[in-house]
Amino acid sequence: MKAFTYERPGTPAEAAAAVARRPGAKFIAGGTNLLDLMKLQIETPTHLVDVNGLGLDRIEPTPEGGLRIGALVRNTDLAADARVRRDYAVLARALLAGASGQLRNQATTAGNLLQRTRCPYFYDTAQPCNKRQPGSGCSAIDGVSRTLAVIGTSDACIATHPGDMAVAMRVLDATVETVDAEGSQRTIPIADFHRLPGDTPHIETALKPGELITAVTLPKPPGGAQVYRKVRDRASYAYALVSVAVVVQPDGTGRVALGAVAHKPWRLEAAEAELPRGARAVTERLLAGAKPTHENAYKLKLAERTLGAALTQARA
């Protein structure tokens, strides 16, 4: 690990300023992903700004009837919150499907959104990777790609967003609140928060340098039956091969988002119009234009079947 200086600022705006004024500075919250990447020298920050003491760890009701989740709320606390369990079950289920108990106790809401891909070539510093080293090439496209993206990919990158929580946040139409070094705040819809790789796969989110996430806000509960279904290589503590978040209303309408198929949680509102016609019709629309590799083409069928199972569960 490279040496770094360390500070604990007093306010969110001070934290944003501390990162904005120092190239090579990074925020640290739970640290479960960042420290792992620092040990491998994939991340090499020269200065760490610890945001754990900023009081961003509360879950509060909003005037609109939703919930405002502080950036530092731990995954365990969010999944265990009585309001989340009752009104946003798809979010509680997604969180509980991810990582291990130890990691959920430490990992934060904002950090979960910002976690990096688990593409094996991103981790292998001996191989080219446009995300780790822009311009070096992509080893995955003709390499081991079984777990990687099938849609929204580019010639530069086929990595996925690996998380579960963000898929539920996408189906719930969450918004991300931030503050920058000048203290000005803005709100980013979750649909616009994660980017597709294009020719700049190292830029993963809409955040500007130094911009700090302060909260993630959920609109009022969508009701309906909410299901998060995750398919993985083992029953626990593994990344998704495909995951599905659905909210299905009694009249058959609903929302669908897929995880582990793209560089961001994958949702197309137009595809949801096909819900009355079933899983095949929805996934045909949702994954139209997919460009899988020979190793991960199975994900197209798996997505359809996982959605089918999720819809059956939701309508049971």
Partner: peptide, 15 residues
Amino acid sequence: GRRINSCLTLAVMHQ
């Protein structure tokens, strides 16, 4: 009061 992976947290974060 909570179990964590002590390898994935910095000692200086635990004042």
